[in-house]
Amino acid sequence: MKQTPKVAVVILNWNGSFFLEKFLPSVYNSTYQNIEFIIGDNASTDNSIEFVQTNYPSIRIIENSQNFGFAGGYNEVLKSVEADYYVLLNSDVEVTPNWIEPVIQYMEEHVEVAAAQPKIRAYHDKTLFEHAGAAGGYIDAYGYPFCRGRLFNEMETDKGQYNDNQEIFWATGAALFIKAQAWKEAQGFDADFFAHMEEIDLCWRLKRMGYRIAYVGASTVYHVGGGTLNTSNPKKTYLNFRNNLMMLQKNLPLSRVFWVIFSRLWLDFAALIKFLLERKPKDAWAVSRAHQYFFLNFFKNAKKRKSFSVKENKKGLYKNSIVWDFYMNKIRKFSELDGENFQ
């Protein structure tokens, strides 16, 4: 009889004692049998560590020497974790008792699936999908990520329309299930991302290695979102615009990389103007800073481009512009997109 795979649920924490106190009980009460709980701490200065040590002495704590961000932090912590599967879980996520079993079962049955995610619903309105992942991530021809159940900031109500299992382009870092071997093969996150889009970059690299990424609708978690950086934070704007360009440079084929990035720079400039018109000068400056970083580190990032001997899996790529469809064609739901335009 095959042994139940070992799962390590790893929560990366940085001054998140409030979220740990609120959501760690639901995680700790998960029903999966062969499981280890780990808190990876990014040099917190609050009482996070003391809280876990006092209330959950069986939970393993791995302390980083400094705040390496989401990407670098997980890279450091997972060097010391042995398991068949890693579950990278945000501290601001409430889970349901049976949230692990369906995803692991699906991944065990589909050996080509390297990473997967559950259904992500909003904690503050549990009828809605949540921004960070919803019912699985996709990407358009210009590198804009979107989800089933969420186009830009338009969230759909969950009426069971995405209760299926589906191959997707990227799985959310809010609750990322990944086979440990695949994590090691891909060499984890790109630490230069610090935070935001590092999971999309990782999933893209896995797809270029021939793996598949999946969404499993039988598992549900509830995500607060914006726990570390508020959605209106200019630093979040900077990281999103900067990391998106870095991701495109690293992963697009040479036949597309130059014209896509050229187009994105102009689209980003339009976003900068929009921020100015909305009287958000700090966000506009964040876009400018993102472009400055991209050009100053162009050759450093170019060295990260890798070629793989297998055929890239493009499932989940949307061949049109989601920006055009959303703003010009007034499409607000994933189901309204033309299925013929998906790879």
Rank of each mutant, 00 (worst) to 15 (best):
A195E: 01
V111P: 08
S307F: 07
A8D: 02
L229R: 08
N233S: 02
L267E: 12
D201S: 14
S255I: 15
R212S: 13
Y215Q: 04
W285R: 11
D325K: 09
R212G: 06
R212L: 10
W324D: 10
F334S: 03
K282E: 10
R205N: 09
N341P: 05
V113G: 09
K319R: 14
A43G: 03
T157R: 15
M107D: 03
V95P: 05
K314I: 15
F193P: 00
S17V: 10
I213F: 03
A271V: 06
W99H: 01
N165L: 11
P145T: 10
T31E: 12
A195Y: 03
N64I: 03
I59D: 11
D338G: 03
E63T: 12
A214H: 01
R208K: 15
F342I: 11
Y222Q: 13
Q3L: 14
L229D: 07
G16M: 04
N47Y: 05
A302G: 15
V52F: 14
K280T: 00
F299N: 13
S219W: 12
L206S: 02
Y162G: 01
M107N: 09
S335L: 09
I139Q: 01
A175V: 06
S219F: 12
N251L: 09
N29Q: 10
V111L: 13
A8M: 02
A180P: 07
N13S: 09
I100W: 03
I62A: 13
M155C: 06
A135S: 08
R148Q: 07
Y138L: 06
N75L: 10
A116V: 00
L20Y: 02
F129I: 02
A290H: 12
P102E: 09
V81D: 07
V9D: 05
